[in-house]
Design a protein around this nucleic acid. Structure first.
Lengths: 183, 183
DNA sequence: AAGTACGTACAGAAAAAACTGTACGAAGTA
DNA sequence: TACTTCGTACAGTTTTTTCTGTACGTACTT
């Protein structure tokens, strides 16, 4: 078997990987993750061993600084873990291989953040609107607008309660009772 | 009741709205939607009547061009509908008020797009990897790597099948059997 | 048919973000 | 203790995205 054939085989392998990595990063980009960060996750996913920052930098042809921030980004999303290996001084990172878990972590993190932002703002505004409605000084027209706004906010809060319960069922794995992993 | 009190009431109302609108736009920003687009959705949500592009432009203090593209953006996400009103020549837009539906549309659109991107890339690469494995010319080391990659891709495809079924349960409303709207 | 209002394509300007290189602190090594 | 190695904070640059103004096609009005 010639060297040429090997080279070719390796090239074909890399190309097949690259296509999938591109798709992964495009996909992640849909949810506001940089394509570079997505490619890094893809590279880590296919890499057999955990990688150091320097290896990532060589693999993606980017600066070490970028690798540092990108990998931290992925860690925040729980898509990558730092691993320890005896005798290795550098930090090692590996991709979380369980995509079910990755999906759940990714969205529960974001959804909970969103719920928190919105619920606290809405509760605060709701209180203010009630004060406004109960205030005798308030113009009747304004009162009516405030009442409508209260209704809208209450409807939204009800939805956020639902979203919270959805997230709970993701986190607890209860969702897999309803939508099983394997058909 | 003095004019001053009215003004004040209106200001308080607007402030309460503004806080919620900010939270909404921050939230939407988490998923890669521009903050301006988010604020526009928020404005439409609280506006009692459907709005024209010119009204939006005045409300947000931005160009009409931006309103045109932003509102189209929101329509693509099914967060805003164009409505028709007798005798009104301008296009009118209103926010979809049902947040359950908005949530479902938003994520099913994105998830389906992601599934399609990834599944087609993975199937193509999977075929190529199988050819590589079956090719006698291929170096054994490469074959082994290809086998590992195949496993990873198959695991991912299984996950995408699950995601597709999850999306189905969102679209059909079946999810509300498991996670009911009201407690 | 001429005039006006409306929405959007497009090119360029402004703003935001992603990325890099330098510098430095922490932690290991000799 | 002096010397490396490593990771990241930060400032500045590059790239990308967002936003605006102009211009034009369509459709309504007179």
């Amino acid at each position: 078997m010639g060297v040429k054939a090997n080279m070719d085989g390796e090239k074909r392998l890399i190309q097949a990987r690259e296509r999938v990595i591109d798709a992964i990063s495009q996909n992640m980009h849909l949810y506001g993750v940089t394509e570079s960060v997505g490619r890094l996750y893809g590279a880590l996913y296919f890499q057999e061993d955990p990688m150091t920052l320097d290896e990532m930098k060589d693999e993606l042809g980017m600066s070490k600084t970028s690798m540092s921030t990108s990998v931290r980004n992925l860690m925040d999303l729980k898509m990558v873990d730092k691993v320890w290996r005896k005798g290795v001084r550098k930090d090692l990172y590996q991709a979380e291989p369980d995509w079910y878990q990755t999906f759940i972590d990714f969205f529960t993190i974001k959804w909970r953040a969103g719920v928190n932002i919105n619920v606290s703002a809405m509760e605060k505004s709701l209180t203010e609107l009630h004060l406004l409605i109960e205030d005798n000084e308030t113009d009747e027209r304004i009162k009516n607008m405030a009442r409508v706004d209260c209704e809208k906010i209450l409807a939204a809060l009800e939805y956020y309660d639902w979203l919270n319960r959805l997230v709970d069922s993701f986190e607890s794995g209860e969702i897999f009772q309803y939508i099983p992993k394997k058909r």
